[in-house]
Design a protein around this nucleic acid. Structure first.
Length: 275
DNA sequence: CACCAGGTCTCTC
DNA sequence: GAGAGACATGGT
C-alpha cells in the first residue's frame, strides 16, 4: 500500500486498507494500549504510537523500518480482498473488518503469547503478558520490551503462576527451556506440515496455537487457525455442523489455499463481533 | 452457582 | 486416531 516516511514518521492516507482498530482488535496481538488519540504498541524491543484521524494514520517510532515490516505495509490488501470476495460470508466479513492486516510479529513473542492464549480470554491474556514484560523485559523509554529467551532462564513455574498464567505456567517453562537449549526457531522454507509438526513438539503448542504462530509469527498465510469462534461460524460457511477443530482447519486451509490466513482474520473478527 | 474464554494434555479404547 | 476430563483464573 502507499505510505510515506518523513522524520521517522510513517504516514498513511488510505484507511480502507489500514484501520488501527481492525488490525489490533482482531485478536492477533496483545501488546497494545488505547490512548486518547490512538494506540501505543510494543513489539519485541520496539515501540510506536499510532495516531488516527478519519482517513489518516500516523505511525511514530524510532524504528520506522521495523514497523513498515510489522504492519505488512508492502502488501496489497486490496488485491487480497478482491480474490476473497467470491467466498461465502466474505463480503459481509470484509465489509465489517475492511482495514484488517496481518502483522509480522516476532516468533518467540508469538509462541509465548499464544501458549498463554489457550482456553483464555483476551483481556486476561494481555494482562498476563504485560506482567511478564514488566518483570523480565528490558526497560524502554515508553515501557518494557518483550523478554528475550535468555532473560527467562531463571523464571520458574512459580513465577508464571504469580503473573496469572495458571496451569499454563509449566508449559511456558518447558517451552522456554527447549528454546534456550537450541530448539530451532528458523523455519526457513520448511514445508507447512513439517513446520507445524516441529512447533507442536513444544509444550502447550497444539494444532491451533501452532497455526497462530505460523500465521502471525511467520506469515504463513496458508494456515487457517480454528478456535471456538471459527467453529461456531463454520456451518454458515457451508460446512457440515458438528465437525471438530482439526477437521475444520484442514478443510478450510485446503479451500482457501494461500488466502486461508487472511480469510480467517476477516471471519474471526466478524464472528467475534456479530455472533 | 454455573458457564465461558483464540485449547492442550493425558489417559483411555 | 478419536473421545472424555482435567485444568487456573477472572468475568458474567
Amino acid at each position: 500500500m502507499k505510505y510515506n516516511i518523513s522524520c521517522g514518521k510513517i504516514l498513511i492516507d488510505d484507511t480502507s486498507e489500514f484501520l488501527p482498530k481492525h488490525i489490533l482488535e482482531c485478536g492477533q496481538v496483545f501488546r497494545y494500549l488505547n490512548s486518547v488519540s490512538g494506540y501505543k504498541i510494543f513489539s519485541k524491543k520496539s515501540f510506536c504510537s499510532l495516531i488516527y484521524v478519519p482517513g489518516y494514520v500516523t505511525i511514530d517510532s524510532k524504528d520506522a523500518d521495523y514497523f513498515v515490516k510489522y504492519f505488512d505495509l508492502e502488501r496489497d490488501y486490496g488485491d487480497i480482498k478482491r480474490r476473497l470476495s467470491g467466498y461465502p460470508l466474505m463480503n459481509e466479513a470484509i465489509g465489517y473488518g475492511y482495514g484488517v492486516r496481518i502483522l509480522n510479529q516476532d516468533p518467540f513473542e508469538t509462541i509465548l503469547s499464544f501458549i498463554v492464549s489457550a482456553n483464555n480470554n483476551i483481556p486476561r491474556i494481555k494482562a498476563i503478558i504485560e506482567r511478564m514484560c514488566r518483570a523480565k523485559g528490558e526497560p524502554l523509554e515508553e515501557g518494557y520490551a518483550f523478554p528475550v529467551p535468555d532473560a527467562l532462564r531463571t523464571a520458574n513455574a512459580e513465577f508464571f503462576k504469580e503473573i496469572g498464567a495458571g496451569y499454563r505456567a509449566q508449559y511456558i517453562v518447558n517451552t522456554v527451556g527447549a528454546i534456550n537449549e537450541g530448539f530451532d526457531l528458523e523455519l526457513g522454507s520448511m514445508p507447512l506440515k513439517d513446520a507445524r509438526k516441529h512447533l507442536m513438539t513444544l509444550s502447550g503448542v497444539g494444532r491451533k496455537v501452532a497455526d497462530c504462530i505460523l500465521l502471525f509469527g511467520y506469515h504463513r498465510s496458508d494456515v487457517f487457525p480454528v478456535d471456538t469462534w471459527i467453529e461456531k461460524i463454520y456451518p454458515k460457511l457451508g460446512g457440515e455442523p458438528g465437525k471438530n477443530a482439526v477437521y475444520i482447519a484442514d478443510k478450510l486451509s485446503e479451500e482457501y489455499g494461500d488466502l486461508a490466513g487472511y480469510a480467517q482474520q476477516y471471519l474471526y473478527y466478524y464472528a467475534r463481533e456479530n455472533l
